[in-house]
Design a protein around this nucleic acid. Structure first.
Lengths: 151, 151
DNA sequence: TATTTAAGTTTACATTTGTAATCGATAAAT
DNA sequence: ATTTATCGATTACAAATGTAAACTTAAATA
């Protein structure tokens, strides 16, 4: 029995979710209006995506007269965190650091974000290993000399 | 004419690329062996993926007697950076910071990684804005009070 | 040179995703 | 009560993806 099968939200569906997360509760009409503007999608396209999201359990539908109002089942932050995990997991663990660095470099962060990041990093520093071994297979990674625990 | 159409590598294909990145140059036989072990894939599955990657321009094939040797066209770091960008871009910009924080928290980082991150963050701190406005549509984001520039 | 065998190529096929038209039901308005 | 304007549901359909069998070709070997 599947327990918490991290519902898989596609890229197009993600757009719909963002509107739902933003408004908390939306009619398909509203989503259509927003995404007709932003993505140039036709109403039936949005309806299909909404339908798929309901089926996947990412949205719930509550009848409101003639129509339905849809609400996100999972929070945006939760979805983003799950997506991050999936993203990170598929990478060579040795190179995740460099990739996070790139992300930090390329992103606009607030003072608060930066402060939180620095604080967390300083904390991690206390127990961080010299090197993170890569988990590439076969065990023959060309990591630069000594940078990696791989052997 | 498409210039640098950030070749789109699927999740299964990514597994093949990782082996190619790790070894630099591989026969489909080798990839098969590795991924039969790691992913429990049959040889034909790997052959299909390799074929698709060659067609997509992610791998080049050089004849070596009976077989071919495949080499990655783009570097792993480059691919990871591109993937990061795509990933980040789809998120609410206001919440990227929290998501990066989560990633940092959940990941094992080396002393060097951490040092580099802190250095970069301290630099960014000098010019970082108080808040990053979210780019959710419609312009009605429920960001916590004052944390966001949205209005 | 004939045969074997291992590579690549072709074909297959279900599922997911992107994108949408059309149909049917029903609430709202007349 | 009937009409109508919407909604949601059904159907559509191509491309991408996951997964693999079958076929073909060419190299290696007997």
């Amino acid at each position: 029995m599947e327990v918490s099968a991290a519902l898989n939200i596609s890229s197009a569906e993600w757009q719909v979710m963002r509107v739902a997360w933003t408004l908390g509760q939306v009619s398909s009409q509203t989503v259509s209006d927003v995404l007709a503007e932003k993505m140039d999608w036709k109403a039936p396209t949005v309806k299909t995506l909404v339908g798929r999201l309901v089926k996947k359990g990412a949205l719930t539908a509550d009848r409101d007269g003639k129509r339905f109002l849809y609400r996100p089942v999972i929070s945006e932050q939760q979805a983003m965190d799950t997506a991050s995990e999936v993203f990170i997991e598929q990478l060579c663990q040795h190179k995740v650091g460099k990739t996070l660095l790139k992300m930090v470099q390329e992103t606009t962060l607030s003072q608060a974000d930066i402060a939180a990041l620095i604080a967390t990093l300083q904390e991690k520093q206390k127990t961080a290993p010299e090197a993170v071994s890569c988990n590439c297979v076969p065990d023959n990674c060309q990591c630069a000399d000594g940078e990696c625990n791989c052997k």
